[in-house]
Amino acid sequence: MAPLSAGSVFEVSEIQNEPVPAFSSGSTKRRRHFRIWRLVVLVLAGAYFLIPLYAGIKFSLQNSAGHFSLQAYDKLPSAPGFSAALTLSLKIAVATMVVSTLLMVPTAIYVHVRLPQLRRVLDVVTVLPIVIPPIVLIVGVLGAYPLWAKSSPYLLSFMYVILAMPFVYRSLDAGLGAIDLKTLTEASRSLGGNWLKTMWRVVLPNIRPALLSATVLTLALVFGEYTMASLDLWQTIPVWIVQFSISSDGNIQVAASMLGLVGTWILLVAVVSLDRSQSRRTRRRMLG
C-alpha cells in the first residue's frame, strides 16, 4: 500500500509541476495530536473513575480517628445483619443460577438445532428485560402475586432469572454459534445417543465457557441488584449496605462495598482469562 501511494504522489507532482502536500508528515502530525488527546482523555476518565474508588478504599481503611486500621474489615463479619444478608443473597443467587441454567440452556440449544427461524424473535424477547426497568417490573409483580409468593425470598430469584436473561441468552447464543452444533448433534444421534445424552455429553462440554460466563454474570447481577430486593422488602447484601449506612458509621458499609467490587472484578477477570485460554486451546487443537 505505502509504496504504491508514494508512487502515485510522485506522478501527480510530476504532472502538475508543483509541490504536493506531503501526506506522511501530515499524518504523523495528526498521529501526535491524536496521542496527546488520547492521553488527556485517558487521564481525565481515569481520575474520574479512580478517585472515588481510592477515596472509598482509603475511607474503609481508617478508624474513626482517621488513622490507618483494618478495623472496618475486621468488624464486617460480625456486623448486625451482615451474615443473614450474605446467606440470603447466596441462596437467591444459587436458586437464580439453577433456574436460569435449566431454563435457558435447553431453550437456546433447541432453538439453535430445531428452530433457527425463531432466533430473531428470541433476540427481541431477551432484550425486553433491559428495556423494561426493574422498578416497573416490581410494581407489576407486587400487584399481581399473592401474599404467599411474596413472602418467599425465592420469588426474587424468579425475577432475577428474567433480569439475567439478556446476559445469559447472549452468552449461550454466542457459545452455541461458535461450535458446529448441527454436525455434533447429528454425529451423536447417529452413534445412538438420545436427546438427553447428546445434550449432556456432547453439547454441554462444548459450551462450558459460555455457561460459566453466564453463571458469573448472573451471580454479579444478584449481588448488585437493589431495586427489586428493597421494594420486595428483602435484606440482600446491597439493601443491607444501604440500610446499614443509615443506622451506623460508614466505614463498615464502605468496606463491604469495596469487598463486593473487588470480588466481582476478580471473578469476571478469571472468567474472561479462562475463556481466552480455552479458545486458544481449541484453536491450537484445530490447527495441529
Partner: peptide, 29 residues
Amino acid sequence: GSAFAAYATAESLTLGVIALSPIQIGNFL
C-alpha cells in the same frame, strides 16, 4: 432510557429526597 429507569443509585445517594419518577414509584409503593 437507562438514566430514566435508574432507581438504586439515586435512592441510595439521596435516600428518596429527589423526586425522580422511579423514586416516586418506590415511595408510593
